[in-house]
């Protein structure tokens, strides 16, 4: 199936990516080509085949619940675009 630029804008919104109109058009073409190519997988009979999300057996790895040194507050904030009073600062979600 082919994606429209509107489909692409919907996916971009899910992924929180701003796109220009030109980008939406170009990605619609390119993503459609890739998905059509991936349609070849539908011809393979996978009845009763278990999925492989990881190649290793999935096991919960536990460790002793002992405190370790982590990053200091200063180190954690050192790369922040905006910080105040020892916290990350974000833009308002709501506003006038």
């Amino acid at each position: 199936m082919r994606l429209s630029p509107d489909d692409v804008r919907h996916v971009a919104e899910l992924a929180k990516l701003s796109l220009t109109a030109e980008e939406a058009q170009e990605y619609a073409e390119q993503l459609s080509d890739i998905l059509e190519y991936a349609d070849a997988l539908k011809e393979i009979d996978t009845t009763g085949v278990a999925p492989t999300p990881y190649v290793l057996p999935l096991t919960s790895v536990m460790r002793e619940d002992e405190p370790h040194d982590g990053l200091s507050n200063e180190e954690a904030l050192a790369n922040a675009p905006d910080a105040a009073d020892g916290f990350f600062r974000v833009k308002a979600y709501f506003g006038e």
Binding site: L35, A38, L41, K42, I44, T46, V49, A50, P51, T52, P53, V55
Partner: peptide, 15 residues
Amino acid sequence: DAYYGKAQQVRTLMK
């Protein structure tokens, strides 16, 4: 199911 799930199953066959 059509894309991601299917790919994980074919991955099993490849392995």
